[in-house]
Nucleic acid binder design. Sequence first.
DNA 1: TCATTGGGCTTTTTT
DNA 2: AGCCCAATGA
Length: 773
Amino acid sequence: MYEYLDSLNDAQRAAVENLEGPMLVIAGAGSGKTRVLTYRIVHLLNHGVDPFRILSLTFTNKAAKEMKQRIAAQVGRSEAKNLWMGTFHSVFAKILRFESDKLGYPANFTIYDAQDSERLIRNIIKEMMLDKDVYKSKQVFSRISSLKNSLITVKSYHHHAELLEADTAAMRPRIVDIYKEYVERCFKAGAMDFDDLLLRTNELLTRFPDVLVKYQERFQYIMVDEYQDTNHSQYLIVKALADMFKNLCVVGDDAQSIYAFRGANVKNIMNFQKDYPYMKTFRLEQNYRSTNNIVQAANNVIANNREQLEKDVWTANSSGEKINVVRTITDNEEARYVANNIYEKAVDNELDWSDFAILYRTNMQSRALEDAMRRREIPYRIYGGLSFYQRKEVKDLLSYFRLVINPKDEEALRRIINFPMRGIGQTTMDKLAIAAGEYKQPMFRVIENVAKLNLGINAGTVRKLNDFVNMIKAFGVQVNSSDAFVVADNIVKSSGLIKELQKDTSPEGVARYDNMQEVINGVKRFVEDNKEQADGDISLSAFLQDVALLTDADKDDPNDNNRVSMMTIHMSKGLEFPYVNIVGMEEDLFPSGMSVNTRAELEEERRLFYVAVTRAEKQATLSYTQSRYRWGKISDAEPSRFIEEVGEDYLEYVTPRGRMSRSIGDGGNVTGSLFGGGDLRTAKPKSGTPPKPEVRTNRRLKPVSSVSASPSVNAESVSGKLSKGNFVKHERFGTGEVLLVEGVGQNEKATVNFEKGGIKKVLLKFARLEILR
DNA sequence: TCATTGGGCTTTTTT
DNA sequence: AGCCCAATGA
C-alpha cells in the first residue's frame, strides 16, 4: 500500500508506522535516520494529518530544506510547503514576531548575532568602569548565554545564592549587573539575541496560557531531530508544546552529542523516559553508510566513554580499506599531503571532487589547507569560519538595513554612524550614550532631538548628526512604498558606501566591493523569488527577517557542487562523504587543550572524533604533524590519543613522501622543490579559487496568520459516525469508499479507497473527511 | 575633535 | 597573522 515502507528495515519501519504517542528513536551513525524522519512525516500526511499541524525541528535550515524536498517528492510541493519545519531559532523567531506585542517587542525586532551581543557587552563593561581584563567580554557573554539557556533570569539569579557565590569565586561578582544592563539595553533596542529567541518563547508560553493552548493545538505532531543537542530552554519549549497531544517523536544519538559547550544537555535524551514513562523506544543500529572497518573503529573509540546509552552499531557492508594514518613534519606539509592525496585518489579512481571532505577541529586550520588546495588546482568550498554574513562590509550594509527597519537598533547605529566617515567620533558617541542612558531612550531618539538637548556637542557635529538622521528617515519612508531592491540600491548609493569601497583597489578591497554587490544581488533575487507569489512579501523588512538566521551551511549552489568540502567537525554532523580526511590529529588541538581537564569535556571531544570518523563511507584518513604554527610561533605537537584508541587492527600507517613524489611526478626527489610548493607544472594562477560567497534566500514559510484560520481540534472530525460502505470526501485524496473502520475513540481509523490516492488508512481524529452518503 | 599608527592580545566548537 | 585599543599628530 505504501511502497516506501518496503525500502525500510524492520526497526525503521516500526518507527515510521508508530504515529501516535511519545517515542524515542535512538539512531546510530549512518542508520538511515533522515529516511525515517522523512517517511514518518509522509506517513502522517498519508493518514490524513494536516501538514499545518506538524512541527519538525531540525538542526540546520539546510536539513529542513532538504527534508522538505524529499517529502515534496512523495506528497507534492503544495502539501510539503505547509509543514512547519526549521531550526528552533527560525521557527520560534517567526512565532515571536507574530506574538511580539505581548512581550512588548516590535514585530520587526532585530536579531543580534554573537558579534552584536559581544560588542554591546564590551560597551557595558566599559561604561560600568570594570576591569576589562577581569571581565572579558567573551567570557561574560558566554556566562550570560548559559544563564539564559538554563532559564535563569536576572530576577531568579538573585534567588539562587550559589550563582553569585560561583561568580564571586571566579572574581566576577558583578556579572549579574552586566546581565541586567544587557537585557535592558537589548529590550530598549528592540533586539533579541540568539538565546532570547528560546528564552522569550518560554516566557510567551508560560505567561500567556491562551497562547500556549493555541500552539499546542496547532502542533499536534512534533518531531525533534538531534535531540541530544537540545539545551534546557529548548527542552522546555518542546515539553510545553507537546503536552496536549503528547505526539512527540525525538530522534538522536547520545554518541553524537557535541554541543554541551553551548548548553546542550545529553540528559535530555537519557531522561526522555522519565518524562514519558509509557514512551516507545526504537533503535536503529544497522549502519548503511560505512565500511565495517570504519564502523568497528568508531565503536572502538567510543567504547572509551563511560557515559553512554547501550547501543550496538553494526553493518553488513564489506570491511573496506583500513583507516590511514599519516605523519608529516609541518602543518603546511600536512596540507600539501592532503591535497595531493585527494588529487591522486580522484584521478586514479575517476571520482568527483565532491566525494571528498576535509574535517578539522578549529577554523584556523583551514588556512594552510586552502593554500594547498589552490596550489593543486582542486576546487573546494569552505563552510563556516568567518561566514559571509559576518564579514565587515556585509554587516555594515545589513546594519543600514537594520537601522532603517528598526531605528532603535543601537548596535547597527554604532556600526554605521561614522562609516563612511562623517566626522562623528568617539567623544560625540560617548555624550550620546550618556544621554541615552539618562533619558532611558534609544540612541536614535536622542540624536533626533540632539539640538534641543544641550549635550555640549558643537554646532558642526549637531548638523552632521541631523543629516544622518534625516538620511535614515528618508530611507524609512521609502521602505513603505518600494520593494527591498529599490531601497537597498538607494541605500548603497546615497549612503556613500559604494564610493567608500570603490576607492580601495587592493585585491581585498575589490573582494569587499564584490561581497557588497553580492548582497544587493541577493536582495534582487529575493524580490524576484517572492513577487510572483500571491502573499509574497517583498519589503526590505521581509528580506532582513529572511537573512537574519541564515548561515553558511544553508547556502549551496546546486549548479556548482563538484567541490571538496572543508569544514569543522561540528559543521559536518549529519553529512556523509565517501572519503574523509581528518587533519590535525594532535594532542592539544584534538582533543582541544581547553577540554582535557575534566572527564566530561574529554568525552565530548571523543564523541566529536566519533562523529568525524563516521562521516566516511569508504575511507577515513587521519593526519598529524610534528610541528605547527600557533599564536604566531612554531610549536611541537604529539599525536592525538584518539589515534591509538582506534586500535591497531583498523589502522594503516602511510608514509607521505613516497606518495607525494608520485603524485607530483617528481620521481623520488624528497627534499627541495617537493615540499617547496609553487613549482607545480599544472598550476595556473587564479583557477581553482573558491567561489564567491553568495546570498541565497530561503523560501519563506507561510505567514503565521494564515494558519490560525484552520479548524481547532476535532472540529470536523467524523469520529464515531463512520461505517463501512460510506462515501467520504477528502481535500487532497478526493472522494472514496470506506472499506473498513477499526479502533475506538482517539485511535479510530478508517481504510478508504480514494479516487485519487488509492487505498489509505486514515486517523479519523485528524482527517478532514466529509461524509457524502 | 577626529584620524592615524603602533603595541598588545588573542584562538574551540555555533544557532 | 589579524583585531582592538591607547597614545599621538592634524
